Each structure stands twice: as structure tokens, then as C-alpha cells.
Amino acid sequence: MQGADKGQSGSLNGDDLSIGIVRARFNDALTTKLAEACLAELAACGVKDKNVLQVTVPGALEVPIALKAMAESEDYDALIALGCIIRGETYHFELVSNESGAGVSRVSLDHEIPIANAILTVENEAQAWARAEEKGRDAARVAIEMANLMDDLL
């Protein structure tokens, strides 16, 4: 038996939201592009500049611990993870991709806070550039929508 669909979904109205962003500096030009697109979309959705805090960390493996600190502060309605991992010739790509992704998910579930994961995992730099702007915008929309949905549900 299925429950009734109440039609609840998070809106893209960011007027009253506080958003935390953690950006990895590794592949800096790409993660800067992700951040620029993300910040522009947050503003377009009504999130005020004063309600956005962006911090940087060295790389994707450091993103989860910064997200954890932000989540523990309880100052944010949603968080955003930005980074870029490009496949190399060794197993390191898989390690960084898997562990950063697992860490982001763990923080979200442990702290019951939405986290938009826009850590790109790509085969080459061309793929990263092709995705950076859209993934940055998408991360902003996901964070806003999920923050509003969680507010509706809880």
C-alpha cells in the first residue's frame, strides 16, 4: 500500500537559508569555476551573501572534516561540497573518489543536514571543464531544494 503523495517538495526559494560551502583547492581553476557558478546560482535563488560561508581545504579528502565542523555548528540549513578528482595512472583516483564521497554522505546522515555533493570525478580535464559550470549551479539548487524539503518534513 502506498501512502498519499502530499506533493511536498522543497522549493528553490533561498531567501531565509544559510549555506556552507567547502571547496577543495586541488585542481584550483576547476574548483574555482564550480564555486563561481554555485555562488551565482545561490544568489539567483535569493540566498543572501551574508548567509553564505565558503571555506577552502587542500583536497577532496579534506572536504568531509570541514563539512563535519560546519554541520556541528548548526549554523547552516544545507552544505555544499565542491571539488575535482581527475583520474590518473594509479589507484589513488579510486581511493580519493570513494573515500571523499563516503565521508560526505556520512556527515549528511550523521548530522541530518543536506549536503549537495559536487565533487567531480572525471576521466580527464576536458570532462571536468565540460561539467564544472552546470554542476556548480546544480549544487546550489540541490542544497536549497533539500534544505526547504527538510524544513517541510521535520
Rank of each mutant, 00 (worst) to 15 (best):
A69E: 13
V57N: 02
Q54L: 14
A43L: 13
E41W: 00
S73A: 13
A60N: 12
A78G: 04
A43E: 15
V55D: 01
E74L: 09
A78M: 07
A66H: 04
A78W: 01
E62K: 07
P58R: 03
V63F: 07
E74V: 07
A78Q: 02
I65Q: 12
V55P: 04
A44M: 09
A60G: 10
N51P: 02
L61H: 06
V57E: 04
V63A: 05
V57Q: 03
P64M: 04
Q54V: 02
G59Y: 11
A40H: 02
E41H: 00
Y76R: 10
L67M: 10
A43D: 11
A66C: 14
E72H: 09
A43G: 13
K68I: 08
E72M: 11
A81V: 11
G59E: 05
L61S: 08
K68S: 15
D75P: 02
P64Y: 11
L79K: 03
K68A: 14
T56W: 01
C45F: 02
V47D: 13
K50C: 02
C45K: 05
A44C: 10
A40S: 08
E41M: 15
L39I: 12
A78I: 06
M70C: 05
V52G: 08
C38T: 01
V55Y: 01
D75L: 08
L53Q: 14
A81Y: 00
D77E: 09
A71V: 12
V55R: 06
D77S: 13
C45R: 12
T56S: 15
A81N: 01
S73N: 08
L82I: 00
L53W: 02
L79E: 09
L42W: 08
E41V: 10
A44F: 08
C38K: 02
G46T: 13
A40M: 10
I80E: 02
Y76V: 07
I80A: 05
I65G: 04
V55S: 03
L53A: 10
N51G: 09
A69V: 13
K50Q: 13
K68N: 14
D77R: 05
A40Y: 02
D75T: 07
S73V: 09
M70I: 09
L61T: 04
E41Y: 00
K48G: 05
T56K: 12
A43C: 09
V63S: 03
C38N: 14
L42C: 11
V52P: 11
C38F: 14
D77N: 13
D77Y: 08
V57K: 00
P58G: 00
A60F: 12
L82F: 00
N51T: 14
A40G: 03
P58H: 01
V57T: 12
P64C: 07
K48I: 01
L39E: 14
L53G: 05
P58E: 06
D75Q: 10
A40D: 05
Y76C: 14
Y76N: 11
L67C: 11
N51Q: 06
A40T: 12
I65N: 10
T56G: 11
D49L: 03
L61E: 13
C45P: 03
I80Q: 01
V47A: 15
D49R: 08
A44K: 10
A78L: 08
L39R: 12
E62A: 14
V63Y: 05
I65P: 01
N51M: 12
P58F: 12
E74Y: 04
A43K: 15
